[in-house]
Computed example of a mutant assay.
Amino acid sequence: MELTPLFFAAAVPAVLLAGISKGGLETAGGIAAAPLLALVIEPRLAVGLMLPLLMLMDLASLRAYWRKWSWADARMLMAGAIAGVVVGWMVFGAVSSDAVRLIIGCIAVGFVAWSVGRRLGLIPLGRPQPPPAGLFWGSLAGFTSFVGHAGGPPAAVYLLGRNLGKTPFQATNVVTFWWINLIKFPPYVALGMFTADTGKAVLALAPVGVAGVLIGAWAHKRVSDAWFFGLTYVVLAATGLKLIHDAVV
């Protein structure tokens, strides 16, 4: 991984979008980051690079939502996520770089389809979910988070069915993905997903991530997220399709 102008042209918007999403403006920024980076660097390194930055953003978000979460729901998702992370670890260790591109690309395109369907009312959410269902959805969140930092949809399916208010919903997401990102770190190290250049890139991009969190927190109650949704979905769909093309051609 070389820290070229092309790298930063993809990395800066990717990290900024992720920070805005973490800060509370509900966009797909966190999911878009890894696919964007995977266009310019090896996909495992792209996913690995984002993890320390997401963990930094988690710390900033935890402070804003401290103890506002539903611990009963977070606990179920966090417990289920362990199995999903283990499966993700096994998959990443057994497949080629093109297979990783294909997985990330399919998750990106699938997320856009899921989100658009949800907004159009084609995918019903909010159905009552018993607490044990959190183990299942947590395992899916752990897997998709491991392979592409895309655990949001499975967690949302469960939490939207728990009838939480806006703040407990966001806070439960924050503490759940703080935990998932934490337990992902050792497997990422074992898989060699960090390099010396990763550390340099993290130091360079950390201020961008923090700025994104602050922007997201400021915009949470002041700005409609419709424009950000549209922009991010277009970028995510195009990026996902490009990764799929590169993987199969």
Results as ranks from 00 to 15, higher is better:
L51Y: 09
L51D: 07
P52M: 08
P52Y: 08
P52H: 08
P52A: 10
P52Q: 09
P52F: 10
L53C: 04
L53K: 01
L53S: 01
L54A: 10
L54N: 03
L54E: 07
L54I: 07
M55S: 12
M55L: 15
L56T: 06
L56P: 00
L56G: 08
L56C: 05
L56K: 04
L56I: 13
L56E: 06
M57G: 11
M57L: 09
M57T: 09
M57H: 06
M57Y: 11
D58N: 11
D58G: 04
D58V: 03
D58W: 00
D58Y: 04
D58R: 02
D58C: 07
L59G: 15
L59Q: 08
L59R: 10
A60G: 12
A60L: 14
S61Y: 03
S61Q: 05
S61P: 02
S61E: 05
L62A: 13
L62H: 08
L62M: 14
R63A: 14
R63V: 15
R63Q: 14
R63H: 14
R63T: 13
R63M: 12
A64D: 09
A64S: 13
A64G: 08
A64M: 14
Y65G: 04
Y65N: 09
W66I: 09
W66M: 09
R67M: 06
R67C: 00
R67Y: 00
R67I: 00
K68A: 10
K68C: 06
K68G: 11
W69I: 00
W69Y: 12
S70G: 05
S70Q: 13
S70Y: 07
S70L: 00
S70D: 15
S70R: 13
W71L: 13
W71I: 09
A72S: 13
A72L: 01
D73A: 12
D73M: 05
D73V: 03
D73K: 06
D73H: 10
A74M: 03
A74L: 00
A74V: 04
R75P: 00
R75E: 06
R75L: 11
R75Y: 01
R75G: 03
M76S: 10
M76F: 10
M76Q: 13
M76T: 02
L77M: 02
L77F: 01
L77P: 02
L77D: 04
M78I: 11
M78W: 01
A79G: 12
A79S: 11
A79M: 14
A79L: 15
A79R: 08
G80D: 02
G80F: 04
G80Y: 02
G80A: 08
A81N: 02
A81L: 06
A81G: 14
A81Q: 02
A81K: 02
I82L: 14
I82W: 05
I82T: 12
I82F: 12
I82A: 14
A83M: 10
A83I: 14
A83S: 11
A83R: 05
A83N: 07
G84Q: 12
G84T: 12
V85W: 06
V85M: 10
V85P: 02
V85E: 01
V85A: 07
V86H: 06
V86P: 08
V87I: 15
V87P: 09
V87T: 13
